[in-house]
Simulated assay, not measured.
Amino acid sequence: MSGTVIETRALGKVYSPGTPAEVVALRDVDMRIDAGELVSIMGPSGSGKSTLMNLIGCLDTPSSGQYLCKGVDVATLDAEQRARLRLDTIGFVFQGFNLLSRMSALENVAMPMGYAGVPRPERLRRAREALDSVGLAAREGHRPSELSGGQQQRVAIARALVNRPALLLADEPTGALDSHTGEEILGLFKRLQAAGQTVVLITHDPGVAEHCDRVLEMHDGALHEQARAMAGGRP
C-alpha cells in the first residue's frame, strides 16, 4: 500500500459556535500521514487530540477546513457514506478494549465483518487469520473474562484489522495495561507497521510516542510536529 492515507487542510472544530459556551477545539490543523507510517498524536487532556481523533476517524465532522481520507473529501459524504468509509477504511482500538463479554475471542473479531456483509465461513477464516497475526490463535474460544488485559487488547487489535483497513487508529491503547504488557502491545504495532500497516496512536504518554516514526503534539487545539525523531523511530 502506498500514497497518502490522511490529509487535513486548515481543519477546525468549534463547539456551540456563537454562544457563550463556544469552545474552539481545533485551530487550522494541517497534517499528512502516508501509508506505512507509525505516528503518534500526543497531548494532555483538553489539548484537542480527542477531537482530532474523532474527525480523522469519521466520527464527527469539522466546522472548517478539509479532511481527505484516502483521497476522499469526507465533507462530500452523507452519514451513511461516512459510516461505510469508516467501516472499510479505519480500524479502531480503544483503551477499554470494548469486547463483548458473552462472545469468544473469535466471535468478537469476526463481528465487524458481519456489518460488512461478509459470509460467515469467510468471517471465521479471516478472524482466525487476524488472531494468528497477533499471537492468539490458541485462544480463539476464550471469552474476555478468561483472557489477560494484554490478550484482550490483542483481540481488540485483531478485530480492528479484520476488515483490512488502510488506517489503524488507537486511542490510548496501553492506558489500561501494566508497563511490561504495554511494551508488548507497542511492539505489536511496530510489527504491524513493518508489514505495511498505517498506525496512528492517540496518547498523552511520551513513552508511547517514543516508539513512533513521527510525533505530532497538540496544544490548545493547534498541531505541532516535533523537530527530531524520537528514540525507536526513524533516524
Rank of each mutant, 00 (worst) to 15 (best):
D88L: 04
D88F: 00
D88G: 05
D88V: 02
D88P: 02
T89W: 01
T89S: 03
T89Y: 12
T89M: 03
I90F: 14
I90Y: 13
I90V: 15
I90M: 12
G91N: 10
G91S: 09
F92S: 14
F92M: 13
F92C: 14
V93T: 09
V93L: 13
V93A: 13
F94W: 11
F94I: 13
F94L: 14
F94D: 10
F94N: 14
Q95G: 12
G96Y: 11
G96W: 08
G96A: 15
G96F: 10
F97L: 01
N98Y: 10
N98G: 08
L99N: 01
L100S: 09
L100Y: 05
L100P: 01
L100N: 02
L100F: 11
L100V: 11
L100A: 10
S101A: 14
S101N: 14
S101F: 12
S101D: 14
S101L: 07
R102I: 05
R102C: 05
M103I: 00
M103Y: 08
M103P: 03
M103V: 07
M103F: 08
S104D: 08
S104V: 10
S104E: 09
A105N: 12
A105W: 03
A105C: 12
L106P: 11
L106M: 12
L106Q: 10
L106G: 09
E107W: 04
E107I: 03
E107M: 03
E107K: 12
E107P: 04
E107A: 15
E107L: 06
N108I: 14
N108E: 15
N108V: 14
N108H: 05
N108G: 14
V109M: 09
V109P: 00
V109L: 04
A110K: 07
M111A: 14
M111H: 03
M111E: 13
P112Y: 02
P112D: 06
P112E: 00
P112Q: 03
P112T: 12
M113T: 01
M113K: 12
M113H: 02
M113D: 00
M113N: 01
G114N: 07
G114R: 11
G114Q: 11
G114T: 08
Y115H: 07
Y115G: 04
Y115I: 04
A116F: 02
A116W: 00
A116D: 04
A116G: 02
G117L: 07
G117R: 07
G117F: 05
V118E: 06
V118M: 05
V118D: 04
P119T: 05
P119D: 08
P119V: 02
P119F: 03
P119G: 07
P119Y: 05
P119N: 06
R120D: 06
R120W: 06
R120C: 03
R120L: 05
R120T: 08
P121A: 12
P121N: 11
P121G: 08
P121I: 13
P121F: 10
E122Q: 15
E122K: 06
E122S: 09
R123Q: 14
R123N: 00
R123E: 01
R123W: 00
R123L: 02
R123D: 00
L124E: 11
R125L: 09
R125K: 15
R126D: 15
R126Q: 15
R126N: 15
A127C: 10
A127E: 02
A127L: 00
A127H: 05
R128H: 15
R128Y: 09
R128M: 13
R128Q: 05
E129V: 13
E129I: 01
E129Q: 15
E129C: 10
E129K: 07
E129R: 11
A130S: 15
A130M: 09
A130Y: 01
